[in-house]
Design a protein around this nucleic acid. Sequence first.
RNA 1: GGCCCCAUCGUCUAGCCUGGUCCAGGACACCAGAUUUUCAAUCUGGCGACACGGGUUCAAAUCCCGUUGGGGCUACCA
Length: 495
Amino acid sequence: MDREIRVRMAPSPTGPFHVGSARTALFNYLFARHHAGAFVLRIEDTDLVRSTPESLQSIYDGLRWLGLGWDEGPGRGGELGPYLQSERLPLYREFVSKLLTEEKAYHCYCTSEELEVRREALRAAGKETKYDGKCKDLAEPERSALEQQGRKSAVRFRMPSGGQTRFTDMIRGEVTFDNSLLDDFVILKSDGFPTYNFAAVVDDAMMRISHVIRGEDGISNTPRQLLLYESMGLPIPQFAHLPLLLGKDRSKLSKRHGSTALSEFRDNGILPEAMLNFLALLGWSRGEQDAEEILSREELIERFDIASVNKSGAVFDLEKLEWMNGHYLRSTPLEKLVELALPYLRQSGLVGKVLSDSHRRHVRNVLALVQERIRYLSDVPSMTAYFFCESLDYDEKAVSKAVKDSDVGQRLEALSTRLEGLREFTKESIEQAVRSLAEELGISAGKLIHPTRAAVTGQGVGPGLFELMEVLGREKCLYRIAAFRSKFLSDAVSG
RNA sequence: GGCCCCAUCGUCUAGCCUGGUCCAGGACACCAGAUUUUCAAUCUGGCGACACGGGUUCAAAUCCCGUUGGGGCUACCA
């Protein structure tokens, strides 16, 4: 009979929630949902100095933003909590004292500084930098003498002397380590907190985790943990080590490669659906020749299979994320896009806090024009500023190109007249006016269109001119054409 | 250094387990063309990879060994 499927995400709150962690969380989530199992969130906050409340919050925010809801964990409760390791100290002490009485662990009185010095010496001598076993066999009198001195002690696990430790990784297959490589590692720090290896083992067992799905950087910790499970007689979960997320230089993805905090992507206007889809494809793909890569959460859950996860590291390809985000942005309903873009427009001061209905319609019309051009929501303000501002930011290149022909002033003046006379100011009527004028002047429509674009938007590129002018409105267009002429075309002053 | 893991286009990958249908398929990026008032989007086409060397075999991207390369770990961090 299969054990109940239970997986966990066990981040430590020691920094902004990382995209790599997000991917690990996603794979755990997909595995759990695919098998109708439980997805547990456990916070590994056993590092007193590095853990911060902000980091903790960023974990919650990040997971929620991606929609990776946990079935058990902080804020949700569950039978097997608490889910913060800092609240589970008595449990760890219990297991430690059991190991102590069984002499499978012992007190170590060496200080970090002493250890560091000795390690350096070993390194210098070209030897393995394992713990030298100084406190391994302390007699009772020596121990109490050290206690008497007020020395704090840590607890070390007594490694079995020989043999090998092996396990079958769901992604990599058989992995073997020589026990002789391992040293007596610390399981309980002198501050009374457990170390990662120990706490993770105790908790995974007590929380009845069936599958440990984590990054490849956890692979070399596995033998230590396996030995721990065995020594405490705890059930051993299955392991799956995910390939790492890499930077452009193929080293483990870190800040020096650019943004790694999930919140930065969110703040730049990456959509959670895009992020989720993109992350899922890093190290995993459906095994088909010609497979669609745009996959919804439901499709991901349905297709996900841990066995088809790749073994090799995956470079975080920002360009593909951007493309994918553009795709999701394009398929977002306009009303929703308004909601999504509004914060960015407000933040840049282009749109005020309160929004009248007509104002809102304007925003909507503007977004309809740029929707298929945006890759990030944060692109919206710079791309649409001329729709909201009174004064224009003229792009130098666009302007100089627009005023190249000597008769540009006359053309624009003629166009203004036509525009003024239009009964309706719609993209159709504007187009009609522009094209017929061009024909009358015996020039290509482009000769009229480009200067006009420069005049009304200040830019050389953008949405179609006619629809853009309709959204801008007649008054603004006429005003801007006049302003453009007096600013850049000297012949207009006299005329 | 030691140990562990990994190795198909620039990048993400399919194929590898169960050798032949693969002078290797898809996606992003790039280039060209189409469309167009620009940009974008879209469509079409193109460029582009089995790290190397040995085996095994009638036949190897696929199996085995080695080399090289890359990465990870090597804490009283997680």
